[in-house]
């Protein structure tokens, strides 16, 4: 009898463990994640979807192109190829991005348009649950809102996720 109870208890424990294990595995599979390239500007965090960023380069010499608007910073030599570099701050109603040695240039490509984007610093490249990206708050002005896909939290800080495709489309016209 005692042995039966012991067997039953073990079986119950094993059943419970299996359920927990299965539940944990189910959560892992179902929790769809997305890669974000998170960068900061003036203490605020912003991000691009990692799928839209092809590579991140250290700061290089940017050659000024005469007759271009302020948000076009110029051209860079990327291993013999020529890429444009833009400052997205213009579209977010933010002050122009400062070029520093610790800055980066992210090469973005979306909708067949490709360009470098100047960043003051890259904070992290992180996988975040898709469900954690919420619609952007109504505090953003209508111009900026057009270029924002949502907001998420990263290390306790709010991160504004930007729609780089919208920005590139707007520039191309």
């Amino acid at each position: 009898m005692a042995s039966e109870t012991g067997n039953n208890k073990s079986a119950l424990i094993f059943d419970e463990l299996k359920k927990h294990g299965r539940a944990a595995r189910i959560i892992d599979v179902e929790e769809e994640k997305v890669k974000l390239v998170i960068f900061s500007f003036s203490g605020e965090f912003y991000a691009f979807y990692g799928s839209d960023i092809k590579e991140i380069l250290p700061m290089v010499n940017i050659f000024f192109v005469p007759g271009t608007p302020d948000f076009i910073l110029g051209l860079i030599n990327l291993r013999g190829d020529i890429e444009s570099v833009i400052d997205v701050n213009y579209f977010l109603s933010l002050p122009a991005c400062q070029r520093t040695q610790c800055g980066r240039i992210a090469i973005a490509e979306k909708g067949g348009i490709r360009s470098g984007i100047i960043l003051e610093s890259v904070t992290d490249v992180a996988d975040v649950p898709v469900s954690s990206i919420k619609p952007s708050s109504s505090m953003l002005d209508s111009t900026t809102k057009e270029f924002v896909t949502g907001e998420t939290m990263f290390k306790g800080k709010n991160v504004t996720v930007l729609a780089i495709g919208q920005i590139l489309e707007r520039i191309r016209g």
Binding site: G67, I72, G80
Partner: peptide
């Protein structure tokens, strides 16, 4: 010789610039 990237072509007012090349690390 490379064509000017599309964003420059779309926004540039200096239409005489048709392309660019790199010579001695200079654009």
């Amino acid at each position: 010789i490379q064509l000017i990237p599309p964003l420059i072509e779309a926004t540039g007012r200096l239409k005489i610039i048709r392309g660019a090349f790199i010579k001695n690390d200079e654009m």
